[in-house]
Design a protein around this nucleic acid. Structure first.
Length: 608
DNA sequence: CTCCCAGGCGCG
DNA sequence: AAAGCGCGCCTGGGAG
């Protein structure tokens, strides 16, 4: 069946091949050399794939960074499809090229000078971010056996080979193939990380979660009623409003009741309520907070998303046009700070948490080559650096000014402060101002590594045309100007958010490999003998690949959490730091920008 | 009944 | 009804 290739293949393309009725699904693997020429072809039963992959990855062995030591890059349709069964069988891929994720980038990138062939292969367009019409979305996705979406791209070998040829050609003729290769490698590694984090799960202390809910809301109600503390808080609000029957969960009715009580607000939103001194406001805000906690992360959520001491959200790499990840179940991107104490390491393990301070402005300083801005943030809090440099008076002002610059604020305090940044950091501000101007004109912009923004839609174009007609009304012009401004703020932010996302992906990718090189720990004593060798330790819930080694469990834009055996926690922390330094060099070379981390090791993942 | 939208709020 | 970007999720309530 399998024969060792004469030379180590540079790439192995993986895909399904037709088998006979009785064989079940078969898998084909085509080995390619570095020139893309076929040097071997193998065909095996689906059930034999994990062993085959393990054998290949093991045989390459050792340090893969040295010459001749590189493991092959697996080329596959979609990490979300191929990885889960491999991980369940105890096998992970070191490197891959995810054709679906790569397609989404290449079909749009400004760096690609000959995009026609890739763009024409529309069967590869089913990325979540590109699901054009909502009515088609249901048909574009399969709800897999577990949870989460497997986009409907072709998974067969013939289609994978053809798409790989198209992508390779597009990359080779790109204006800067190196950057694009870096981006695609990072994006694909992100696909692997997402699949692996889902397999491992976040260690979650269900008892602590329940304790937090009970403390804040009262004991869990039988059936679907509201907990007692919430009911009594609601009574306080109704009493203060002198409206004993009002339904606080209905914004319309609540608004009417508030106005009857003489509270002059236009909506029931928090920021507006805060302006009122009325005695109903304080308990109402508390009630809203309780209601939010109950509906978003209450007992129902716990039942649905946490199992066996593991929280397994569905990540969607590349799900945001800027390159950030999205989530499609479980709310991985919105775990409230209130519940942070529920993230808890297994017995004998630690959580190593790290986040980057002010990632986006640092990415901006690096990509624009703004030495003054880089200097302001070097080795310290960037906002305090702005105060020290005399750009603004307080840290709070610095934050408002910097966010305002990246988001395109023109009014209020931010609007007043941004001109000072323009004066002090001309290179950085020129970069974002140019991006905004391109967007206002209807153009596209690209991140540092070449991810390109989507052009404005047909509706936007129509508004602009309407405003340019001879009979355009003032309202037409106002609408068009507003839409142009919106698009400008989008492209302004795109280059910064997208480049920050690239740094974060490079960080993740490098960290993942460093952690995978750590040795497996010895079996813990309880897990060793009694059960005939079967692993019964809590860490077994992380699955065969991760139960004995530090591994990533959480990622959120500029933050990672690693679950590590206690004796490996320091090494894991060092890996996180080394990966951050490495990501900075990989993207920005010797630019004088650093990406300092706030890092902590503990039983729980507590952020202040 | 289902579908869709807006309001509101959690995260970066 | 935030000013000022990017998301996902839950709820109520109207449309079909």
């Amino acid at each position: 069946m399998t024969s060792a290739p004469a030379q180590r293949p540079a790439a192995c393309v993986l895909g399904t091949v037709p088998g006979t009725k009785f064989e079940g699904q078969r898998i084909g693997i085509v080995d390619l050399d570095s020139a893309g020429q076929e040097i071997g072809r193998i065909d095996l039963a689906e059930a034999d794939l994990p062993e085959f992959v393990r054998d290949r990855e093991d045989r390459a062995g050792g340090d893969s960074s040295g010459p001749g030591g590189a493991r092959s890059r697996w080329v596959l349709s979609d990490t979300a499809k191929w990885c889960p069964p491999l991980l369940a069988a105890g096998v992970s891929l070191e490197r891959c090229h995810d054709l679906r994720l790569a397609h989404a980038i290449l079909a749009r990138s400004e760096l690609v000078t000959a995009p026609e062939a890739v763009r024409a292969a529309s069967e590869w367009d089913a990325a979540p971010a590109d699901a054009a019409a909502p009515e088609q979305a249901a048909a574009l996705f399969d709800l897999d056996a577990g949870r989460g979406f497997i986009p409907q791209v072709p998974h067969d070998l013939v289609a994978a080979l053809a798409e790989h040829v198209r992508q390779t050609a597009a990359i080779e003729t790109a204006s800067d193939p190196g950057r694009l290769r870096l981006l695609l490698a990072a994006e694909s590694a992100g696909g692997l990380v997402a699949a692996e984090m889902r397999a491992a799960g976040v260690p979650w202390d269900e008892a602590e979660h329940d304790r937090i809910l009970t403390e804040l809301l009262g004991p869990r109600p039988i059936r679907d009623g509201k907990p007692q503390k919430m009911l009594s808080k609601a009574e306080d609000v109704r009493a203060a409003l002198e409206d004993p029957r009002v339904n606080l969960d209905s914004p319309n009715r609540l608004l009417a009741s508030l106005r009857n009580a003489g509270i002059n607000v236009a909506s029931t939103s928090k920021w507006e309520l805060q302006t009122s001194e009325h005695p109903a406001v304080a308990p109402l805000l508390e009630y809203k907070k309780m209601a939010r906690l109950l509906s978003a992360n209450g007992w129902h959520w716990l039942d649905e998303w946490v199992d066996d001491g593991r929280y397994r959200p569905v990540y969607v790499p590349g799900g945001v046009v800027t390159g950030r990840w999205a989530a499609s179940g479980g709310g991985a991107l919105q775990i409230p700070r209130q519940l942070r104490p529920a993230l808890r390491a297994d017995e004998g393990w630690r959580l190593v948490s790290a986040d980057v301070a002010q990632l986006e402005p640092r990415a901006l300083a690096a990509m624009s080559g703004d030495r003054a801005m880089a200097e302001a943030g070097f080795g310290r809090d960037l906002y305090s650096g702005l105060v020290d440099a005399g750009v603004v008076a307080t840290r709070q002002e610095a934050k408002i000014a910097v966010l305002g610059a990246m988001y395109g604020s023109t009014t209020g305090e931010a609007g007043a402060l941004v001109p000072r940044l323009r004066q002090n950091f001309p290179a950085a501000m020129h970069l974002v101002d140019s991006a905004a101007e391109a967007g206002r004109q209807g153009g596209v912009v690209s991140t540092w590594l070449g991810r390109t923004s989507p052009p404005p839609g047909e509706g936007w174009q129509r508004l602009q045309r309407a405003a340019n007609r001879f009979d355009a009304t003032g309202a037409d012009e106002q609408r068009a100007r507003r839409a142009a401004g919106d698009q400008g703020r989008f492209t302004r932010n795109f280059v910064v958010q997208g480049t920050a996302a690239e740094w974060a992906l490079a960080w993740l990718a490098d960290l993942r490999l460093r952690l995978a090189r750590l040795p497996e720990i010895e079996e813990t004593s309880e897990a060793a003998a009694p059960n005939g060798g079967k692993d019964t330790s809590p860490a077994a819930a992380s699955g065969p690949v991760f139960s004995r080694r530090a591994h990533l469990v959480f990622f959120l834009h500029d933050e990672v959490i690693v679950h590590a055996p206690t004796e490996q926690a320091e090494e894991a922390a060092e890996a996180i730091r080394a990966a951050a330094a490495s990501a900075g060099r990989l993207l920005f070379g010797d630019a004088p920008v650093d990406f300092p981390l706030d890092l902590s090791i503990g039983e729980r993942a507590i952020k202040d």
